[in-house]
Each structure stands twice: as C-alpha cells, then as structure tokens.
Design a binder for these strands. Structure first.
Ligand code: MN
Ligand code: MN
Ligand code: MN
Ligand code: MN
Lengths: 225, 225
DNA sequence: AGACCAAGTTAAGCATCCTTAAAAATAAAG
DNA sequence: CTTTATTTTTAAGGATGCTTAACTTGGTCT
C-alpha cells in the first residue's frame, strides 16, 4: 500500500483532471492539498519515478494507467465509507467526509468488500458520486450540470454535491438542499454570478462558489439515478 | 491526536505493565513493537518530555495518568472495532486484529461512540478483553488465569485469548477453541511446559507459548462474564 | 575490589514529507 | 522581440521515526 500522502495526491490529481487524462498544474494540486508548491513539485517527481503519473517539468501531471487504478481504489474506499457511516451508523452528511478522508487510507480490500456487500453493492455515494467497483469500473451516469450553468425558469433534481469541505456541505444542508431535492431556478444574476433557487416554498440565493459545487439533472433524467 | 507511533507505543506500555503502573524495560517494548532498542529509548525520552510516561535512564518506562488515559482510548477504539468487524461485518476472529490495529488510529470520538451505540454498549471484545467506556473505565472482570497455570483434571471456560498476532489466533481457532468453550485439563508436561486439553472429544497439546496466551475461568465463575 | 557481560543509551545517518527562500522557466506586455 | 511578471522548480533545512554501530552503565562473578 502507498503512503497516505501519495494516495491523497493521486486522488487529487484524478479529481482535478476531471476524469479524463488532462495534465493538472502542480500549483492547483498544492491549493487543494493545502501544501506548498515546492512539496507538490517534489511529489510529482517521486510519483513519476514510481510510474504513477506522467510529469514533465512546467507541464503539470497526469495519471498513468497504474496511477488511475490506485486513485480509483482510494475513491472507492472513500465513497463506500461515507455511505456506510450515514446508512449504517447514522452519521450526518456533514460529518462523514473528514472521517472518510482518513479511513480511506487504512482499509484492506477484505474490509471494504465486506462493507460493499453489507450495503448491497451501491452505485452512488451519499453525495451522488459514483462508486468504483472492485475492478475500478464506474457505473454509467447521466450527464449532470452545475447549477451555475442551469437555465432560469427550468426545474431540476439535485443529483450530486461536491463534498471537498464539510463547511460547504453544512451550509448546503442548512438551506434544506438534499440529494434528489426538486428545485426551480428563479433567476440568475449576472453581476455576481449568483443564482436564486426555489425549494418547496422557500427561495435561496446561492453564490457562484456554492452553485458550481451542486450538480443537477433535468427532471426527466431522474430515473437514471 | 498523537501520532500512530506514539499511540502504539503507549498502548504497548499499558499491555506490558499488566494494568498496574509497573516500569517496563525499553527492550521489552522494542520486542513487542518490532523496532530497535535505540528507537524505543528515543521514543521513551520524547514521551517523557510530553508528560505521557515516567522515564529514567536504565529504569524503564511507566505510564503517567495522562499517558494511561490515551492508552485506554486507543484500546477502546481497538476493541470496539474488532467486535464491530466480527458482529456487524462478519469478519473472522483471525482477520480483525490487524485491521483494528490500523483503524484504532484514525477514528474520531464521534465515530467510535456511534459504533459503541450500534453494538449496544458491549463490555467485552471478541477475544474476551474488557472495553473501556467513554471515560476510560474498565468493566469489572472475574480473575482469569492463563492455561499454563491451570490444574490438571479441572474443567474451565475459555474466557480470554490474547490476540497479539493473527497467526496465534488462527492456530487456536484451528484447534476448535473459541470464547466460552468448555475445556478439561488432561495433564501438564513438566519437561516442555506443554499442556494437553480436551475439548468435546478431542485432545490437543498446547505449547507453553500458546497456553500462556489463553485465559480461563473456573466453571462456576462463568456467569460473571 | 576488579573484570566482565548484557542491557540500554547515544551518535550518526537515512527516508518521508513538509517548510521558506532563491533561481529558473514560461507567459504576458509593451 | 525584449522586458517584465507570474508560475514552477530547485536548494537548503526541519520534524518524525526508524536503522546500525559505538559507547555507557549497572549488575554479576571471581
Ligand atoms: Mn467525501
Ligand atoms: Mn485522505
Ligand atoms: Mn486485537
Ligand atoms: Mn495500532
């Protein structure tokens, strides 16, 4: 098994590259991992030596096939743990991410497979993200769009919430937004890129920062999830 | 939270001191932790600086009050995880120790309390060891004796198995020994300190190494567990 | 007591992962 | 196409936790 730092790094490259094999700037990774640029450059070289990323100085990093395999394993552990903590142990949406962020690094295949079995082989985690199977395959997903790209007047279903920070999740929860909530886009304000949405009878304003982390699907796509 | 190394060290001091505040030789800890004596001496000094152990050169280490508090927290997490993995996830006796050895270092109070609640506040782990409560108090336990101190001809109940290594646990399991099994001491051989025991209709020979890790209670003490 | 031995400690050094500060490469302006 | 600004890398060093090898210390044997 690789070190905690290496696993977190590979997972972050995967997230930042947006699934495809794009090159990611080392400074972007430094931001997300909350370490210095210097630390990220150094790690890029080490992971490159280990054959887990493609890296050329000043050109960013991208996962190799074996690097992606590891990233998907970590992601699998993270997402299964989150679902388990919510479904079986009754923890809250806001609590599970930080816990999973640690557990993902100290869970054997045997254990994570037991958890998967206990949850009856789920396909999505509590934030709507797909869970890789034992071979690293992701389930088919409908195309989702972030709220800041939605159309005013249209109605959508909340389908995924990017859960990088528990602060964001707690804020979203406090607005009454949950997975599979139905929302209507009231209007979009150009000057600050905020979006006003209607949930039930309440109208809330979402800043750009918030709206770009919430993904929705069109109402008629709902059955695909 | 302290580092993994420090937590393991404190836990090992607790185990080695046999509950009371005896001083433990650094070399004994080095053996159990499978590191060099040098590493143990260095760590003794660091933990002493942090006020977690009493340490005077050449005199061994003993837990301070705050050191014992941490040891008991780690022990609590270890034992609750082991029980959880067996009871809820169906893992085997031999598998859970190694898993718990890692999980014990990355589990928040919130999570371990949820686990405790889910298990309905158990008092003993799957090997018969007592589980400290949230305040670090251990449940009352009957006095147990290791099999190598048992009396030939007498009948006992298996009440605790020290689970330092999964090899030992697997061996014991393969002999058909489980918690609460009833056994009879057939005889004790002086020349190699082995013990022969009868379980059901089978007679097995236990080496000294094995017999000193299995603890039994007299038959009439059974109800106290 | 003096010599000896085993147990325990210190010294020096290595791996990992991080930092800040200086240097180099790339990108942006003029 | 230079000059400047920004991004990225390299260099030097610190903390932690480990190693082997050399050195102390305390206890034992004669
Ligand atoms: Mn998460
Ligand atoms: Mn993590
Ligand atoms: Mn155990
Ligand atoms: Mn451990």
């Amino acid at each position: 098994m690789h070190s905690i730092s290496k696993e977190n790094y590979l997972k972050t490259v995967y997230h930042s590259a947006g699934g495809s094999g794009e090159q990611v700037a080392t400074s972007k990774l430094a931001d997300k991992l909350e370490v210095s640029n210097a630390a990220t450059s150094e790690m890029a070289r080490k992971l490159s030596d280990a054959g887990l990323v493609n890296y050329a100085r000043y050109k960013g990093v991208g996962l190799t096939e074996s690097g992606e395999k590891i990233a998907l394993q970590v992601l699998r552990r993270h997402r299964l743990w989150e679902l388990f903590l919510i479904e079986i142990l009754g923890m809250s949406w806001g609590e599970v991410h930080d816990e999973a962020e640690r557990l993902e690094h100290c869970t054997s295949d045997t254990l994570i497979n037991k958890i998967e079995e206990h949850l009856e082989f789920p396909k999505f985690d509590p934030h709507g993200s797909p869970i890789p199977d034992r071979e690293g395959n992701l389930p088919a997903m409908p195309t989702l769009i972030p709220i800041n790209q939605s159309v005013a007047g249209d109605t959508y279903i909340i389908s995924k919430v990017v859960d990088q920070s528990s602060e964001l999740i707690n804020h979203i929860t406090s607005l009454g937004i949950h997975l599979n909530s139905k929302i209507m886009i009231v209007d979009k304000l150009d000057f600050d890129e905020s979006v006003r949405i209607k949930i039930g009878n309440e109208v809330h304003s979402l800043s750009k920062k918030v709206s770009e982390h919430i993904f929705v699907s069109e109402l008629n796509n709902q059955d695909k999830i």
